[in-house]
């Protein structure tokens, strides 16, 4: 009885933290699914903004049922995401990254100026709280399951080939464009989900919510956690939501410690922190391989489907 009581009191004390982690996990998934497919897109953050306005306004102004509003927001972003992926089809790497950052920030500028819809600088406030932590948790589980399917078997290998060597992929029947579009659209939908839930849980939206800071945070989560797998994105979301809170206790230099940790992980752990977990797991099964010390980036992505179907 006492354990149950202590668990529930721990939960009560940390509910906001858990909610934030879940929402950030969806956003991190959004970036991860793109990066893993070789698409350096940060558009998920822009769709986070669009999704939050769409769901928030539909519930608040049109009194739509929550589920319907969320679905509408996600479908809208799927469509916009597909359109964006078609527009940006020629871009790769840092150029694609900058184009999508520009898209994200442009969404913010439009939101700030479209006062009649978004409330402009005042933001959209007073959205009724209409989702529960449990709903979000189930959504995260569902999204994780879909992403897990996407990184194994035929599609898992195909997306790795698309990421590592597009020309080779084409020579093996892969319609690179279609596979990239799928990853882009899934990324948009996950971003929209994160935004929609944020709006419906924390009741207000500011045009500056999805700014450069959020882009940086989402990217950092994915790279620190490890972009090779959804588990890395989840780990990144947990750590980067939780660590800053822990670090505040060490005083005014916590940000610097946080920055130093980012440099160390980005420089010396190419597969992200999740690769340490994988290596530890292998070591405990007695077949440790020093992936970290190997030159190159073999540790970046786990073997796509070594466990079979």
């Amino acid at each position: 009885m006492q354990t149950i009581a202590s668990i529930s009191s721990w939960y009560a004390n940390n509910e906001t933290l858990i909610q934030e982690i879940l929402i950030y996990a969806l956003l991190a998934f959004s970036i991860q699914v793109a990066l893993r497919s070789g698409i350096f897109s940060l558009a998920g953050v822009g769709f986070y903004a669009i999704g939050s306005y769409a769901a928030g306004l539909l519930v608040k102004e049109q009194a739509w049922p929550t589920a319907l509003a969320v679905i509408a927001a996600v479908l809208l972003c799927a469509l916009l995401g597909w359109a964006l992926s078609v527009l940006l089809v020629r871009l790769r790497d840092l150029y694609l990254a900058l184009a999508t950052v520009a898209f994200d920030l442009m969404v913010g500028v439009v939101a700030l100026n479209w006062s009649s819809l978004t409330g402009g600088p005042l933001g959209t406030v007073g959205i009724p709280i209409s989702v529960t932590t449990l709903t979000i948790f189930i959504t995260v589980l569902g999204a994780a399951a879909m992403l897990a399917l996407m990184q194994r078997g035929t599609i898992g290998r195909t997306l790795v080939a698309v990421r590592e060597d597009e020309q080779l992929a084409r020579s093996l029947s892969v319609n690179v464009r279609r596979y990239r579009e799928l990853a882009f659209v899934i990324s948009s939908m996950l971003g929209a989900l994160a935004g929609a839930y944020h709006a419906l849980l924390f009741t207000d939206i500011q045009a500056t919510d999805a700014g450069f800071e959020l882009i940086v945070l989402a990217l950092t989560m994915v790279v620190i956690g490890g972009f090779g797998s959804w588990t890395g994105a989840l780990l990144g979301a947990i750590l980067l939501t939780w660590i800053p809170i822990e670090l505040t206790s060490i005083g005014q230099w916590w940000d610097a410690v946080y920055g130093a940790m980012m440099i160390v992980v980005a420089t010396f752990i190419p597969g992200g922190l999740i690769s340490l977990v994988t290596i530890a797991g292998r070591a405990s099964r007695g077949r440790a391989r020093p992936s970290l010390l190997r030159r190159g980036s073999a540790a970046a992505a786990p073997p796509a489907s070594s466990s079979g179907a």
Partner: peptide, 27 residues
């Protein structure tokens, strides 16, 4: 591809026909 085993690399060829079904089917 360095992130896959040799067999998985060869499977990229063996799966070509299935891959042509497109991303949704393979997913």
């Amino acid at each position: 591809l360095r992130t896959m085993s040799v067999l998985e690399n060869v499977m990229l060829g063996a799966q070509a026909e299935w891959v042509r079904r497109g991303p949704l089917a393979t997913w």
